[in-house]
Amino acid sequence: MRIGSACRSKVLMVLMVLGVGWPAQAQTAEEIIERVDRLLRGDSSHGVTRMQVVTEHWEREMTLELWSLGTDHSLVRLLAPAKEAGTATLMADDDIWNYLPKVDRTIKVPASMMGGSWMGSHFTNDDLVKESQLIEDYDVEMIFDGEHDGVGVWEFRLTPKPEAAVVWGYVDYQVRKDDYMPLWARYFDEDERLSRTTEFSDFRNLGGRIVPAVMNMRPADKPNERTTMIYDEIEFDIDIDASFFSLQSLKRRR
């Protein structure tokens, strides 16, 4: 009895290692999306990224150092440009604080400004704090399974659950079949109009896993504008706990 069971497990393991045991189709849409979601976040992370913002009126590039823990805590500190270095943002639960080194003050972003731009980018403050696990907030449905330009992809439609605090009407994701890499996400408003598109590219090994190193977000109403995040370094599942995400850390200068 015991031996038989052990044998079966071994066979199963071999099959898995050979990659023949579990046809991808056997996974549910939720499982794929959860995998994609975890890929981009990890339980915790620490990294350095460049953020390029291009608007009709100006272009700028910032270098940011960021820490995150789960979906509720993150801290971002500006490393460059030098004039603004030290400016930092702390997100804890649903609140955002900005630290301004020039005046040495910490300012909590008022509720009325949560829809405002974060550091001049196309992300709003709300985008940062409302982030949550996709499968918690959305019902996932596969809407395409086939090939695009010779690449096998799935497309999913994520429709917010009734109680979810989400501003989107729905979100479509395209995921590459062979390595589960997201290719793009399209965000639609409640009138089903395209609101923004995020494209993922430059899939590289960073911090021990293959991740898209470049994330490019374009608002649909301003086709010539974009915010691009380029990860230079990232490490996942670092030793950090919630106490790190405090107002004291926010002020700490490097």
């Binding site: 913002v53 608007t55 009126h57 100006w58 272009e59 700028r60 004039k83 603004e84 400016t87 900005n98 301004l100 020039k102 005046v103 003050r105 300012i107 731009s117 550091m119 001049g120």
Partner: peptide
């Protein structure tokens, strides 16, 4: 008081 206002160059203008 601290005033914070987005600058015309994309920076976050702030001063006392």
């Amino acid at each position: 008081v601290v005033l914070v206002a987005p600058g015309a160059d994309g920076s976050m203008g702030n001063d006392l």
